[in-house]
Design a protein around this nucleic acid. Structure first.
Lengths: 191, 191
DNA sequence: ATCGCTTGGTTGAAGTCTCAACAACTACTA
DNA sequence: TAGTAGTTGTTGAGACTTCAACCAAGCGAT
């Protein structure tokens, strides 16, 4: 948190004025349990995935996500703003992260021909090679820490539920779940 | 990521030698979709909750979680290590965060009588008051961004699933062994 | 053309988290 | 009674993120 905290400011989108003064509808016990389980589980999951990637491949989870996203696009290129939006990163954060990736030779910046303001982010061969070497371990970790722990039905419900959550934050249709992790199998080893 | 990345290190617990060289079992399309939806949804969810808390109450999500955890214990007191474990924070992270909370007068540190090494973290009245004022808005945000978006059944399944995920990662403190990222699934359970 | 507005991206400082090293203490063992 | 090992918590530096300010380019209306 910052030093400029706003100590009760105007209504936010999360709680419009007409709701703020009404009594809260607290969570039921069952809801409370589910919510806490979510908090705990998601924390452990990202912890495990972050550590595995960092340790085995020397990339952070967000860097990996960037590479994956780029690997899926024709030309391995994407505009900064699209990249940021599809990963739910701030533009500033993406700028910094891409700068680090660029310093390592994994991506390059190119001026966008169509729009003078735009900047294209392009994944180099080195970036793709790194992604290919990192992917198997990452997928194993995703399985070991999530996918293989659940039944197909459970995973399906979780996916559907989170798709609703994701869609709620945007105007876009629920269908639009731009992907990130896990490079397309077409590129490398077969399934 | 750090500058000391390990560029393909030794086998980790996450992927023991006997697994590392085997072909990966990639995710099916359905699994892939669920996994990506999870990534996107969880990112948006934490984003929304973080912003709401910061903006309306001037606390970060992790600070809020600390206060909640303390508020539930008899005496509003908990040892640093227990606090860290229950929140899946590293000890170092908790130390820093508690220091900031202490500087704001929301918690206090007390020496632990039972164990000379231990430090008790105690929530002050000011901390409790802040929590009380922040809670309604936070709960509204949790409802608006998760609970009220799902059916009771969906939320139940999500909770159960994440409880499994959380339980799977329990064996072992995060910081001790870098190579324990993923619980071994020696039983060879597949999807 | 030019003004004003919006968008896309960067910058630097401040805030937060991670990592490795360390100090203080407990627990086991001989 | 040490001696050694494991636990608990802190520290400081470096890595990453956030935030606000900023520049440059497109966009629309005058």
């Amino acid at each position: 948190m910052t030093t400029t905290h706003a100590e009760h400011a105007q209504p936010t989108a999360a709680q419009p004025a007409d709701q703020r003064d009404e009594p809260v509808q607290w969570l039921t016990d069952a809801q409370q349990r589910a919510w806490r389980a979510y908090l705990l589980g998601s924390a452990r999951l990202t912890e495990a995935l972050t550590r595995q990637l960092e340790y085995d491949s020397g990339v952070s989870l967000s860097e990996y996500e960037i590479l994956v996203r780029l690997s899926e696009t024709p030309g391995r290129t994407l505009r900064m703003s699209e990249l940021a939006a599809s990963l739910v990163h701030s533009r500033s954060r993406l700028t910094h992260t891409v700068s680090r990736l660029e310093a390592r030779g994994l991506v390059e910046r190119q001026t966008c021909a169509a729009d003078g303001r735009g900047v294209n982010c392009f994944m180099t061969d080195a970036g793709f090679a790194l992604l290919e070497s990192a992917a198997p371990g990452h997928v194993r970790a995703v399985r070991a820490n999530l996918v293989d722990l659940l039944t197909d039905e459970q995973l399906q419900v979780v996916g559907d539920a989170m798709a609703v959550v994701a869609a709620a934050g945007t105007d876009g249709p629920p269908e639009t779940v731009p992907g990130m992790l896990v490079p397309e199998r077409a590129a490398g080893a077969s399934a």
